[in-house]
């Protein structure tokens, strides 16, 4: 089943699922409302045999960012829509290895107390990738059984990949 049909099928059940203006080049990119993410993935996995979670990551778009983006607005089709909206953009890349279809799902969640449903259980690959996002961005994944820092030490202050992260010198600096 081509990606287009899957999209229409999903759109019938999940209101708010739209084709993203900001396409990841080469992959169909859909914007999913944050609360629908887990059900959408569940459907993709069980009904459309999307059995492989490639990548989970996040991008920080604070309100101040995007000044450069507006200058570069000459390429509107690819411009990141999240710029300057004070959100975290979560990016999931999911593939069906049997049919070779790969889709990119993106969600926007507010930067204040960011939280989203975990994909743990549907894809075990989400386990550490979500822990990494939690570690580096401070995004809470509801339902994740072991949401602890994975890369930085326990003594790390703040979440380094946030754009407003200020490094506090520690005893090793």
């Amino acid at each position: 089943m081509p990606a287009e049909e899957i999209f229409l099928n999903l759109q019938a059940s999940f209101a708010g699922l739209v084709k993203s203006e900001a396409q990841v080049k080469g992959y169909p990119t859909w914007t999913v409302p944050a609360q629908a993410l887990r059900p959408v993935c569940d459907r993709l996995r069980t009904k459309f045999s999307f059995d492989y979670l490639d990548m989970v990551t996040a991008v920080d778009w604070p309100a101040s960012a995007g000044a450069v983006t507006q200058v570069a607005a000459s390429a509107p089709a690819a411009a990141p829509t999240a710029a300057g909206r004070d959100v975290f953009e979560l990016v999931y890349l999911i593939s069906a290895l049997s049919s070779g279809i790969r889709v990119c799902l993106r969600c926007e969640i507010p930067r204040k107390e960011p939280s989203i449903h975990s994909l743990y259980g549907i894809y075990m690959a989400a386990d550490w990738q979500e822990r990494e996002v939690y570690d580096l961005f401070g995004i809470n994944f509801e339902g994740h059984p072991n949401l602890k820092r994975v890369l930085t030490p326990e003594t790390q202050q703040g979440h380094p990949l946030r754009k407003d992260y200020v490094h506090v010198p520690d005893s090793y600096d």
Partner: peptide, 8 residues
């Protein structure tokens, strides 16, 4: 040299 996570 400018990383937050590395002992220089």
């Amino acid at each position: 040299y400018d990383s937050y996570a590395v002992v220089k």
